[in-house]
Design a protein around this nucleic acid. Structure first.
Lengths: 183, 183
DNA sequence: CCCATATGAGACACGAACGTCCCACTCCGC
DNA sequence: GCGGAGTGGGACGTTCGTGTCTCATATGGG
């Protein structure tokens, strides 16, 4: 008994990553519990998505912390970040898509905090001459999210090998963001 | 009278780009027509999305044609493609997202045809030594779609100036795909 | 062993969106 | 001016997901 809330969230994340329109019933069955029990722990779909948001924010924040973005070259920091964020990629891309559906009323303030950290990282990289200055930090941040989502999707559909996930993202994003010599 | 089917599709695309969950009623009002009339021209939501798919495929295909990808350097071809695809960016990113919701049963064959063209373009660029060979054509194709979507979204939320749309995408994607000298 | 707590299954009402239909109105061609 | 086609508004039934509730069952601690 005594349901493992964390495990339910994990399976919900795994399911919603694949099928973002999954029913509460499907979420419950995927977690191996009854729909009633699911409702007992999460007031409704909004509450469930909210809990997933908190989870995703925590994971992303942890990845940011563990990446120690400011240690050494910015390029290496970014590589560590991508590697650290890989396990959460599916969940994060689901949450990004979910957020886009909102009418911008009440967005979880956690996202703005994370956006600010990522954006600030790119800006520092620019100031240190490691990143191109003609691509704005805000755009690099959004592009990072987009590439994470695209790559997670490509892995899911078999277009990209799972083991290549970090490499594909880092090489594509970094190649563009890195100051190249002929510029 | 005699409803302009094309115009209805345009306004539906514009609305669904911003709010992909918009109701048939909202779509109708956005087009300035009644819900009944909308249903007379499109059997249902599926038919409407299907018509939008055809429209998006036509536009993307036209962009591919007009870009003349094989004329001159691959880089220039890509620049022309991005510029040509800009007006359709919102619609295309909506359709890509929409397609991901499908359980992969019956996808419009148009997409595979377009995927093949884009993918082949990247492959030729690789063979001619203009693109890196460690990033697969399939991934470059998906990344292109993802960046188009991210940039369209960034423009909509004001994070990226509309006039910078082609530049931001091309520079980021190309920088990564382009063989850089220090490699 | 017994009881409290949590669960699963199902029933129920509610709301949203859909798809269909009808009716009055308007606009156009004849 | 007249008739018909096209349109808008609204009503209706249906479906689907949601949220709440009840009840029987199982599990685990005292």
């Amino acid at each position: 008994m005594t349901l493992d809330r964390e495990q339910v969230l994990r399976s919900a994340a795994a399911l919603l990553t694949r099928k973002s329109t999954a029913t509460m019933d499907e979420v419950a069955r995927a977690a191996g519990i009854g729909r009633a029990t699911l409702h007992r722990h999460f007031a409704g779909r909004d509450a469930l998505v909210g809990a997933l948001e908190d989870l995703g924010i925590r994971e992303f924040e942890a990845a940011l912390d563990s990446a120690a973005l400011d240690d050494g070259a910015a390029e290496e920091g970014l590589r560590r970040l991508i590697a650290a964020v890989e396990p959460s990629a599916g969940l994060l891309s689901f949450l990004v898509t979910e957020n886009q559906l909102f009418e911008g009323d009440d967005v979880n303030e956690g996202w703005s905090r994370l956006d600010a950290r990522v954006s600030a990282f790119f800006r520092r990289g620019q100031e240190r001459g490691e990143f191109r200055i003609d691509l704005t930090p805000a755009w690099l941040t959004e592009a990072l999210y987009g590439l994470i989502g695209s790559c997670a999707w490509s892995v899911q559909t078999g277009r990209v090998a799972a083991q290549d996930f970090p490499y594909m993202i880092v090489e594509l994003l970094l190649g563009g963001a890195r100051r190249s010599v002929e510029k």
